[in-house]
């Protein structure tokens, strides 16, 4: 199996240029060479997250609206692993209009699947952050959606995502409660516009895309206004 170059860098010396680059960035002495098996050590996923993800995704996966990054903490391990893997395989982040996805895809290309899974599992173990403040600080785009109308529309979403937006791994549906609403809205729009979920290998994306096909833009804003009100617990 291909070993992630980040992981290799955390543990030993390397030859290729790209790898050299990362040695310099992370520090060749990050861990004593060959002192530990790459899989060992409680810091591994956290260190990988710190080195590769934290600048953009924020402390412990809390997300950063200014960098267009979603909340990752508290999403399920299975969902995170699948999304990271679909970026890695190019199911996600290939569509020319998926601007944030295009930025994300090269970030995971150097990773081994096992490392992505480990980072995903670690993020899943973290508490869902409480919303940091008002709309301006959480980056909600002020769409002025109507939550009452959204509540009715959400009944269809609840079948997979759960009544409280808690998500359902068996159905491949992520948690929605606690996600930044600007992000949920943007992704919903991407599914509606076929920017996400249209890659032939992206089966779960395809089913989401099919589910939202009949929504109008206003519906999306209303649904997200309702999701925003679901408590994080």
């Amino acid at each position: 199996m291909q070993r992630s170059f980040y992981r290799v860098l955390l543990t030993s010396g390397l030859t290729v240029v790209a790898a050299l680059a990362v040695v310099a960035v992370l520090g060749a002495g990050t861990r004593p060479a060959a002192a530990q098996a790459p899989e060992a050590g409680p810091f591994a996923p956290r260190a990988l997250y710190g080195a590769a993800c934290a600048s953009c995704h924020g402390t412990d996966g809390r997300g950063n609206p200014r960098i267009d990054t979603p909340v990752l903490a508290g999403l399920s391990a299975a969902y995170l692993e699948r999304q990271l893997d679909s970026f890695r395989r190019g199911y996600r982040g290939r569509h020319p209009e998926d601007l944030e996805g295009l930025e994300m895809r090269p970030m995971v290309e150097g990773f081994a699947a096992a490392d992505l899974a480990a980072v995903g599992a670690w993020l899943a173990s973290l508490p869902v952050p409480q919303p940091a403040g008002d709309a301006a600080t959480t980056g909600a785009e002020g769409q002025g959606g109507d939550p009452a109308r959204g509540r009715t529309l959400y009944a269809a979403c609840a079948v997979c995502h759960g009544r409280s937006g808690e998500g359902n791994d068996a159905l491949g549906a992520p948690r929605l409660a606690g996600q930044a609403s600007w992000y949920t809205l943007r992704q919903l729009r991407k599914f509606m516009d076929g920017i996400r979920g249209s890659h032939p290998d992206d089966t779960s994306g395809a089913s989401m895309r099919a589910s939202v096909a009949g929504l109008a833009p206003r519906d999306a804003a209303d649904i997200v206004a309702w999701i925003e009100m679901l408590p994080v617990n």
């Binding site: 240029v17 680059a21 090269p106 970030m107 290309e109």
Partner: peptide
């Protein structure tokens, strides 16, 4: 020298 550009590391 390393350019630590995200997704575009260069030497």
């Amino acid at each position: 020298d390393v350019v630590d550009e995200l997704g575009a590391r260069q030497v």
